[in-house]
Amino acid sequence: MSEPGGANRARSEAMLPFDDRGLAYGDGVFETVLVRDHRPTLWQAHHARLIRGCEVLGMRAPDRDALEAAFAGAPGLKVTKLIVTRGSGGRGYLPPAQPKVRLRWRSTAFAPDTARWSAGVEVGLCRLRLSRQPALAGIKHLNRLENVLARAEWREEKIAEGLLADQQGWLTEATAMNLCWHDGRRWFTPPLEQCGVAGTLRAALLEAGLLEIAPLHLDELARARALCLINSVQGLWPLRRLHFPIQREPFEPPLADAHLALQRSAHQLLGYHR
């Protein structure tokens, strides 16, 4: 159920028509925003990415007031998902000349898994390899079939996430989080010009000078003295064991002090204080 009341709530929960282009083609974008007492965290970055995604797809974004109406409602910690589609119309794949975008949202109560902040997580390397498509790289478009297929590769509860490389073996991201790696001196995150989603927490840490961009190939994992996964909802999870889909010993980077400094900065940005 969506949190906003009255007409806004009805609008948010209205069913999509059969000819909605987001439903038919994944023609749209979305954002998943951590909201604390009506205040969306990292909203500037989320809004900027949504605007850029709409620009890439060639459609008008909803005005900011309409988007921010989704953050009204009961206090507390929530996750609000905003979905913007191109609406209905057009002929086949050809989009309408003057689309009427459609906005939907839903808010749900949320509590982070704080045990993973300190104990770290086990992660599997996915068999699926990401395709390269620079025209769509970075944005959070609705067509996430690669992520769906990758996430279907495991059901073991001990595996918290799946790591994804592109077709050339360059590590890119996890199914729903960004990847960071430490070389013993500095933290890095892979470039995302060819594929992957440019996360808002990743952007904030880059802007703060706490991350740098550098590639890491699967064949060069030994360069990483520490690994972690980040996103703007869950925060930072240290990676303590990486399982491979072939007969190979797991990669077990240490839970280093370097995690604590980056985690502290990341969680301050998200309002997680420990």
Rank of each mutant, 00 (worst) to 15 (best):
P4Y: 04
G5W: 05
A7H: 09
A7T: 15
A10V: 10
S12R: 12
E13Q: 15
A14V: 03
L16M: 05
P17I: 03
G22I: 02
G22L: 01
D27V: 01
F30W: 09
L34R: 10
V35C: 11
R36F: 09
R39T: 14
P40H: 02
P40Q: 03
T41F: 12
Q44Y: 06
L50D: 04
L50H: 01
I51A: 14
G53N: 06
G58T: 07
P62C: 02
R64Y: 08
R64M: 15
E68V: 08
A70T: 04
L77K: 02
K81W: 02
L82P: 04
L82Q: 01
L82W: 01
I83T: 15
V84P: 02
T85I: 08
R86N: 08
G87L: 04
G90I: 07
R91M: 12
Y93L: 14
L94P: 00
K100P: 00
L103G: 12
R104H: 15
R104G: 08
W105F: 13
W105T: 11
R106E: 11
R106Y: 13
S107P: 08
T108I: 07
T108V: 12
A111G: 12
D113L: 14
D113I: 08
T114C: 11
A115K: 06
A115Q: 11
R116P: 01
V123G: 03
C126N: 10
C126D: 09
R127N: 12
S131W: 13
P134T: 04
I139L: 07
L142I: 03
L142Y: 06
R144P: 08
L145V: 07
N147C: 08
L149C: 02
A150P: 05
A150T: 07
A152P: 00
E157F: 05
L163T: 05
L163D: 01
L164S: 01
L164V: 00
A165R: 02
Q167T: 15
W170K: 00
T172N: 04
M177W: 04
D183H: 02
D183Q: 01
R186A: 14
P190I: 07
P190R: 07
E193R: 15
C195M: 00
V197Y: 01
L206P: 08
E207H: 12
A208I: 05
I213S: 15
I213P: 10
P215I: 11
H217E: 09
H217I: 02
R223S: 12
A224C: 05
L227Q: 06
C228P: 09
C228K: 02
G235Y: 03
W237D: 01
L239M: 11
L239N: 03
R241Y: 00
E249Y: 01
P253S: 11
P254C: 07
L260R: 14
A261Q: 13
S265E: 14
Q268C: 10
